[in-house]
Design a protein around this nucleic acid. Structure first.
Lengths: 213, 213
DNA sequence: TAGATTGTTAATCGATTAACAATC
DNA sequence: TAGATTGTTAATCGATTAACAATC
């Protein structure tokens, strides 16, 4: 299947559909309708249908989409079926949490090593992944042709680590540090900044509270 | 200042502006122009100006906005100046990372306690915050009138914990579990699902790679 | 004054939603 | 057949961007 280009809006909804579809009983939901999905997730049914049309071979009127096919199509589209290697910089609490999380493989991401400056943890392993000294990052990434770098170091060190990653040929950076990274045009940055989410949550909460009183 | 309603797009950009503004030298940037901010962050200058108009008392032509005032205005708008109490369910790696992170207070969030089922860590403290047995969650939250709950438990337990939080009067849930939570209309959910970010990153990366070869 | 910048009004762009014919 | 559902075309809605007058 040749994919049309997909907006980031659609791209953000696809993992939600996937998660929902996987939560369904395989026996009871041989087929699932866009109306159903939309209802469960609080979305518009046409929107769901349009999203699905972009990545799947389609459903049948009155019946809906074959659930398992749809799961497969979404996973395929999202690239969960082929594994990308990644390294992580920073093996503090957050880095450790990410290293310990085995769920990433499900999403096609394999963290192969971690880097840190703390002598106490260098050469130890976290969840079977070795913690290496930070100065080895560049060499290992370029030798192994690692494409994805995860930044989980404190904010002041983030840009420096980012530069090293870029130098070593990394093409996509998943940034957990609350810093706006400067990268060349050919490098992607995905910020996972908790401040954004927190801003949304607390703002909406205070709005609710001020209306309701 | 009476705020007009702000779109979620604007709301997501505000923390980015804030972070950028804080990174500026206080001496060199008494004032900052929307053009400058836009240039540094890769945004459109009119967009920045419109965003800022919604939350600040305005800048002056040719001069720009007083940097410190702007920082204050954004923080005030985002509610970073008044502290909300929160509890966290799940003191595994992720929960531990969140508990250990002292930066949340900056965003007006104070995690006051954690809850877990693991006897080995109950009654210990992480970063000065006590880990309590899970069955005490409801009682403590309703007694302390906690408004925000953070879910960092494995996916299968998330909905149950969510229900307990809702029952105890929590109004906003920050959900780190990859699950679509079902909540009453009056409860807010903010999903911090890494699958979304990862989907975006890996999809964009594979697109780039397929174009460039 | 000249020019950089603000803030506003109008145009554009694109995502969402509504309407509806086709299909099972 | 009747009715639920798909998929498409058109309308709506709202965010972004362009144009420009006002201002320092």
């Amino acid at each position: 299947m040749i994919y049309k280009s997909v907006s980031t809006y659609t791209l953000q909804r696809l993992p939600i559909y996937l998660e929902f579809l996987k939560s369904l009983s395989k026996d009871k939901f041989i087929h699932i309708s866009a109306t159903n999905i939309a209802g469960a997730l609080g979305l518009n049914d046409v929107q769901v249908r349009k999203d699905l049309a972009l990545i799947s071979s389609g459903g049948r009127p009155k019946i809906g989409y074959p659930t398992q096919n749809l799961i497969y199509d979404i996973e395929k589209f999202l690239g969960y079926d082929n594994v990308d290697c990644a390294v992580i910089a920073g093996a503090g609490d957050l880095g450790r949490a990410l290293l310990s999380y085995d769920g990433f493989s499900k999403y096609g991401l394999a963290i192969i090593a971690a880097f840190d400056v703390d002598e106490a943890i260098i050469d130890t392993a976290i969840n079977g992944k070795k913690v290496l000294p930070a100065h080895k990052l560049k060499d290992l990434c370029s030798r192994m042709k690692v494409r994805i770098g995860i930044i989980a170091v404190p904010a002041p060190y983030a840009q420096d680590i980012c530069n090293q990653m870029v130098d070593s040929g990394i093409l996509a950076i998943w940034n957990f540090a609350p810093v706006v990274l400067i990268v060349p045009d050919n490098v992607l940055v995905q910020n996972e900044d908790m401040a954004f989410s927190l801003a949304k949550l607390s703002k909406q909460l205070s709005k609710r509270l001020s209306i309701s009183q």
